[in-house]
Amino acid sequence: MNPINYLYLAALLFTIGAAGVLLRRNAIVVFMCIELMLNACNLAFVSFSRMHGNLDGQIMAFFTMVVAAAEVVIGLAIIVMIFRSRHSASVDDASLMKL
């Protein structure tokens, strides 16, 4: 169990999340991809924590979870609000302000 492998997995998950944010068009899916990126960060934190033998990384992971939960509350509120007024959660439809 070499911790390096977990870091590769974290980097891979982060990349999948980032690609999803850029490619997907549904605001909810985009938001889920951001959550995936945050979870990739958590995996990196606990792997590094294991490597270095201190608890800083695990504490960071706890804080990240709390922040992610708070972000879900705000994010879903905003996305549901825009869905109710437009009947669409596509990020392409939100284009009232273009140059």
Partner: peptide, 28 residues
């Protein structure tokens, strides 16, 4: 106004995920 909020939220959360992964790497 709602459109501005969605854009700010999605891009802001995206950028803070980058910041967090950067923090993870610096911690490593």
């Amino acid at each position: 106004s709602q459109e501005a909020a969605v854009k700010y939220f999605l891009l802001g959360a995206f950028s803070s995920a980058f910041l967090l992964f950067g923090i993870a790497l610096l911690y490593g």
